[in-house]
Computed example of a mutant assay.
Amino acid sequence: MTHVTDVTSQTVGTEAGDARITWHTAKKARLVLAVSHGAGGGIEARDLRALAATLPADGVTVALVEQPWRVAGKKVAPAPKTLDTGWRGVWPALTGPGLPVIAGGRSAGARVACRTAAELGAHAVLALSFPLHPPGKPEKSRADELLGAGVPTLVVQGGNDPFGKPAEFPEGDFRLIEVPYGDHGFAVPRRADLTQERALEIITGAVREWTASLG
């Protein structure tokens, strides 16, 4: 049981094109968690679906944000600057309910949330599968984006994420939760002593605890 009053879709015009928000609205909302997808997928990602199904019961409205390139049916994400433009354009609609907004995303969406959090006045940042570096290129670190968020930040990272394993992350003013065996999409191998369902429970449990601590 999700305790969601309704699920609605909203199209929002931005300078990068039309974006889309799918609202999973809590009955007595106290926060909005806005999360966007990565460069290789959409809001159907397993972690985003799990958060939308569970968090409204805690009074957290989940807004799943589809960037304009996905709404337009394109296969390849544009440059980071264009992703930031799309996110900025959606932000006024996200703040529309008058509640504190947590900026979040997975992979490329997490980078966008970190880069724009201070500028947009985000309440906090949720970084799912933060791509600390391109696979096999740890020297090309994006840690400065994460460390520069400037607001309370939770990172949820797969233990086998080729874009950055938990042990590779620098010390900083953020909390990091590991999903054992998880890859960049939080998939766990069948041979692991952890089920896929349990992996998702780790993610949703960590986010629920963290959002409760934010007030």
Results as ranks from 00 to 15, higher is better:
1 M>A: 15
5 T>N: 12
6 D>S: 15
7 V>C: 10
7 V>N: 01
10 Q>L: 13
10 Q>F: 09
12 V>I: 12
13 G>Q: 15
19 A>S: 11
20 R>W: 00
21 I>Q: 00
25 T>P: 02
27 K>A: 15
29 A>R: 06
32 V>K: 00
32 V>R: 04
33 L>T: 06
33 L>I: 07
34 A>W: 07
36 S>Q: 13
38 G>H: 13
41 G>Q: 12
44 E>V: 07
45 A>E: 15
50 A>S: 12
51 L>H: 01
53 A>T: 11
57 A>Q: 08
59 G>S: 08
60 V>L: 08
61 T>S: 15
62 V>Q: 10
64 L>C: 05
74 K>I: 00
76 V>C: 03
77 A>S: 15
77 A>H: 04
78 P>N: 11
79 A>S: 10
79 A>M: 06
80 P>E: 06
83 L>I: 11
85 T>Y: 03
87 W>Q: 02
88 R>V: 07
89 G>F: 03
90 V>G: 09
93 A>L: 12
94 L>R: 00
94 L>W: 03
99 L>F: 05
99 L>H: 09
99 L>D: 00
102 I>H: 03
108 A>H: 08
110 A>G: 14
113 A>K: 01
123 H>K: 14
124 A>K: 01
125 V>L: 12
129 S>H: 04
132 L>S: 07
136 G>F: 02
140 K>S: 10
143 A>H: 02
144 D>G: 07
144 D>I: 14
147 L>T: 04
149 A>C: 10
152 P>S: 10
153 T>P: 03
153 T>Q: 01
154 L>K: 00
154 L>I: 05
155 V>C: 03
156 V>E: 08
156 V>S: 05
157 Q>E: 11
157 Q>N: 02
158 G>Q: 02
159 G>Q: 10
162 P>C: 10
163 F>M: 13
164 G>N: 08
166 P>Y: 10
167 A>G: 05
171 E>N: 11
172 G>R: 05
174 F>Y: 15
176 L>M: 12
178 E>T: 14
180 P>M: 07
180 P>W: 06
184 H>E: 14
188 V>S: 05
189 P>M: 08
191 R>E: 15
192 A>G: 02
195 T>K: 09
196 Q>D: 14
196 Q>R: 13
196 Q>T: 04
201 E>F: 02
201 E>N: 10
203 I>T: 07
203 I>F: 00
205 G>R: 09
206 A>K: 11
209 E>L: 13
